[in-house]
Design a protein around this nucleic acid. Structure first.
Lengths: 177, 177
DNA sequence: CGATGACATTCCACTTTTGACATGTCAACA
DNA sequence: TGTTGACATGTCAAAAGTGGAATGTCATCG
């Protein structure tokens, strides 16, 4: 139930956010950490409110509902952070393909690894652009968000370097070896 | 539909595998790439067979069914590898927690980052043990599997180093800064 | 011979995620 | 004034994933 806590956590940090705000926030701040579709967010907001972890604090124009976290919600966030262990879920489609690259020729394999490093480079550029677009402040969210951005950069660089190295290995093997 | 191709790809590489074999293989070879439960694997085998991408090549004792890939299955594997673009799905629960670490004190945040790097160290140890347990050969699966293992090691090291760095940042900030 | 544990499959209820479709409001600009 | 585009929510069917129960076979060991 991580989505639930992603939504709850964002509302905790930004009182008065609406579903629509959260939707943009997922792209902006949680982009390389967690994804969510619109239907998931609105659904979860309804469930969180039904469970008393958040409440509709105000209603604005166009049916806008601004949510605020409740005391029960804050307690649940703390409980989740300190009393549950995170799951490291391992599901990586580009890497899954690498595993089966023997099923195409070495040339194609090298091309696919090139495409992978290029794709990662693109993601890295996006992340750097994001970093520059964010109005960094002195608050907790900026601080911890900054740690996460740094993680993203290190991850992309590691991954790109690995893809380049792997491509070299494939070439060396094809060249005879 | 990555699970489908994970199952199909394994059968392509290891003709004569059963659902039970695949189940163990997911733990052994795909552990840090893709996960699957028993019910998922058996379900997917049934669907792949119904779609003509694999067939039951032999039946063994205890109701064992050994599968073989069909020509249509091989074609589908190649199509998937070369004609579709992988999705980089970003969903990382430990990292999601970091994002919200402002909601607990700096002491707790530092502890949680310690737990993260310790957890990753554990995963790295498992991976090294796995590497040593695998009977490496000269075939394609060993070669590409080796690239994936190397990726896993680089990933774990990067992640552990990041967690240690992040913990230092949290301490420095708490100390006054 | 009986117990155990690895082998092996099937099925099911539930939750989560995906990818639309549908509906409507409001501000700004041509 | 009309139209465009951002704002804003609700709902739903289908696909994917989780977690466990139920069932039975076969080989080995004491």
């Amino acid at each position: 139930m991580s989505l639930r806590h992603a939504v709850l956590g964002l509302i905790a940090e930004l009182e008065g956010a609406s579903g629509y705000d959260l939707l943009k926030l997922f792209d902006l701040s949680l982009a390389n950490v967690w994804t969510a579709t619109q239907s998931q967010i609105y659904g979860e907001l309804g469930r969180l409110a039904a469970d008393g972890l958040i409440r509709v604090a105000a209603e604005g124009p166009r049916g806008r509902k601004e949510y605020a976290i409740t005391e029960a919600g804050r307690a649940e966030m703390r409980r989740w952070l300190t009393e549950t262990r995170p799951r490291y879920l391992r599901r990586d489609e580009p890497l899954l393909r690498v595993f089966f690259l023997g099923q195409v020729g070495a040339d194609t394999a090298a091309e696919l690894l090139d495409a992978d490093s290029a794709g990662i480079d693109g993601l890295l550029d996006e992340l750097v652009a994001l970093d520059e677009r964010i109005p960094w402040k002195e608050d907790d969210l900026s601080f911890y968000g900054g740690l996460v951005i740094e993680y993203g950069k290190r991850f992309m660089e590691m991954r790109r370097d690995w893809a380049r190295w792997a491509r070299g290995e494939v070439e060396a093997r094809a060249a005879g070896d």
